[in-house]
């Protein structure tokens, strides 16, 4: 059984909402406190990217099962300007805005799986998963 939740991500209030929903599902999936914190933090970083750089979009939070393992998968999708140089964007400290540039690189370290799909003018889709 997989559970799905779609959340609009347009403002900084929505970032809070994403954190709260992700937290609820992480608790439900039985993640330890440290793991919960890692997942919520990654969600917060990515949701903020969606608002600040992607011009808003949506998040899909789902519980997934594979090979007897339970995981939490977060997908963030926007129709924004997209990323020209993904490799550069993944570097610690690189930012086109006013942030610290830890959003992408940091959330990759906090999760087990990280996938980014983006092209200029095509928007950005980031998928991250953490297994229990």
């Amino acid at each position: 059984m997989t559970r799905h939740e779609k959340i609009e991500v347009r403002s900084s209030d929505d970032v809070v909402k994403v954190r709260q929903r992700v937290r609820a599902l992480a608790v439900e999936a039985g993640f330890s406190l440290v793991d919960q914190t890692k997942i919520i933090t990654a969600a917060s970083e990515l949701a903020r990217n969606t608002v600040n750089y992607g011009g808003g979009g949506h998040a899909i939070v789902s519980l997934v099962k594979s090979n007897g393992r339970t995981g939490l998968r977060l997908v963030f999708e926007d129709r924004g300007p997209g990323i020209t140089d993904i490799e550069l964007a993944m570097q610690d400290g690189y930012s086109t805005g006013a942030g610290l540039g830890l959003g992408l690189s940091g959330s990759r370290r906090l999760m087990h799986e990280f996938e980014i799909d983006s092209a200029p003018g095509q928007g950005t889709k980031v998928t991250v998963t953490r297994w229990r």
């Binding site: 406190l33 440290v34 919960q36 890692k38 933090t41 970083e45 830890l102 690189s105 940091g106 370290r109």
Partner: peptide
Amino acid sequence: PAVAITMVELGL
């Protein structure tokens, strides 16, 4: 502690 561990992992 959980917050501190996460911050270190994040790179803060």
